[in-house]
Amino acid sequence: MLGKPQRITRGIDYRMVVRRGARRAGETHVVHVVDTGEPRPPRFGFIVSKAVGNAVTRNTVRRRLKAICLEATPSLRPGADVVIRALPASAAAPFADLRRDVARGLARKAGA
């Protein structure tokens, strides 16, 4: 599980990343990335709206995205802030497809 130092928790940080970050859209998500240049591990935030599904579905998608980001952390730039917005297709996507799609987006925008 992503530890507290690896999570974006404040609304102002979410807005800054989404507004100013480089964006890459995939089939199941949209990745926004800002390189802060700070000497710290990358931080992640997740946006999973009601369009994705009910509460159980949204939490499942969020847990899957967290697991994928934890695996990808070693290959990301230090100081990167990443916000992933899940699209409705992420609810029905198998985990392997979701992992491949998100990893492709992270490698392009936040890779070291």
Score class of each variant (00 low, 15 high):
residue 10 R to C: 05
residue 10 R to W: 04
residue 11 G to I: 01
residue 12 I to D: 14
residue 13 D to N: 14
residue 13 D to L: 10
residue 13 D to F: 09
residue 14 Y to I: 02
residue 14 Y to V: 02
residue 15 R to Q: 15
residue 15 R to D: 15
residue 15 R to Y: 11
residue 16 M to R: 13
residue 16 M to H: 13
residue 16 M to P: 05
residue 17 V to F: 07
residue 17 V to M: 09
residue 18 V to K: 14
residue 19 R to H: 13
residue 20 R to T: 04
residue 20 R to F: 05
residue 21 G to K: 11
residue 21 G to Q: 11
residue 26 G to T: 01
residue 27 E to D: 15
residue 27 E to Y: 10
residue 27 E to H: 15
residue 28 T to Y: 15
residue 30 V to F: 08
residue 30 V to M: 10
residue 30 V to K: 09
residue 31 V to H: 08
residue 32 H to D: 05
residue 33 V to S: 10
residue 34 V to R: 12
residue 34 V to D: 05
residue 34 V to Y: 03
residue 35 D to V: 01
residue 37 G to M: 06
residue 38 E to N: 10
residue 40 R to N: 11
residue 40 R to M: 13
residue 40 R to W: 09
residue 40 R to G: 11
residue 41 P to I: 01
residue 41 P to D: 12
residue 42 P to T: 02
residue 42 P to E: 05
residue 43 R to V: 05
residue 43 R to M: 12
residue 44 F to C: 08
residue 44 F to Y: 12
residue 46 F to C: 08
residue 46 F to A: 06
residue 47 I to L: 12
residue 48 V to E: 09
residue 48 V to R: 11
residue 48 V to S: 10
residue 49 S to G: 12
residue 50 K to C: 03
residue 50 K to M: 04
residue 50 K to D: 04
residue 51 A to C: 09
residue 51 A to N: 15
residue 53 G to W: 02
residue 55 A to E: 05
residue 55 A to F: 04
residue 55 A to C: 08
residue 55 A to Y: 03
residue 55 A to D: 05
residue 57 T to V: 13
residue 57 T to Y: 03
residue 58 R to L: 01
residue 59 N to S: 07
residue 59 N to L: 03
residue 60 T to M: 10
residue 60 T to C: 09
residue 61 V to L: 12
residue 61 V to G: 11
residue 61 V to W: 09
residue 62 R to L: 05
residue 63 R to Q: 06
residue 64 R to N: 03
residue 64 R to C: 01
residue 64 R to L: 02
residue 64 R to F: 02
residue 65 L to R: 08
residue 67 A to V: 00
residue 68 I to G: 04
residue 68 I to N: 04
residue 69 C to A: 15
residue 71 E to F: 12
residue 72 A to S: 14
residue 72 A to D: 08
residue 72 A to G: 08
residue 73 T to C: 10
residue 74 P to I: 02
residue 75 S to C: 05
residue 75 S to Q: 11
residue 76 L to S: 04
residue 76 L to R: 05
residue 77 R to G: 06
residue 78 P to V: 01
residue 80 A to C: 08
residue 80 A to T: 00
residue 80 A to Q: 06
residue 81 D to Y: 04
residue 82 V to M: 12
residue 83 V to K: 08
residue 83 V to D: 00
residue 83 V to A: 07
residue 84 I to A: 08
residue 84 I to H: 07
residue 84 I to E: 07
residue 84 I to T: 01
residue 84 I to F: 07
residue 86 A to R: 09
residue 89 A to S: 12
residue 91 A to M: 05
residue 92 A to G: 12
residue 92 A to H: 11
residue 93 A to R: 03
residue 93 A to F: 02
residue 93 A to D: 03
residue 94 P to Y: 06
residue 95 F to Y: 14
residue 95 F to K: 08
residue 95 F to M: 07
residue 95 F to E: 04
residue 95 F to D: 04
residue 96 A to V: 06
residue 96 A to R: 15
residue 96 A to T: 06
residue 96 A to G: 09
residue 98 L to N: 00
residue 98 L to W: 00
residue 99 R to C: 13
residue 100 R to S: 14
residue 100 R to G: 07
residue 101 D to Y: 02
residue 101 D to W: 01
residue 101 D to H: 02
residue 102 V to P: 02
residue 102 V to E: 00
residue 103 A to E: 15
residue 103 A to D: 14
residue 105 G to K: 02
residue 106 L to T: 00
residue 106 L to I: 00
residue 106 L to H: 01
residue 107 A to F: 03
residue 108 R to D: 14
residue 108 R to L: 15
residue 110 A to E: 07
residue 110 A to C: 10
residue 111 G to S: 02
residue 111 G to W: 01
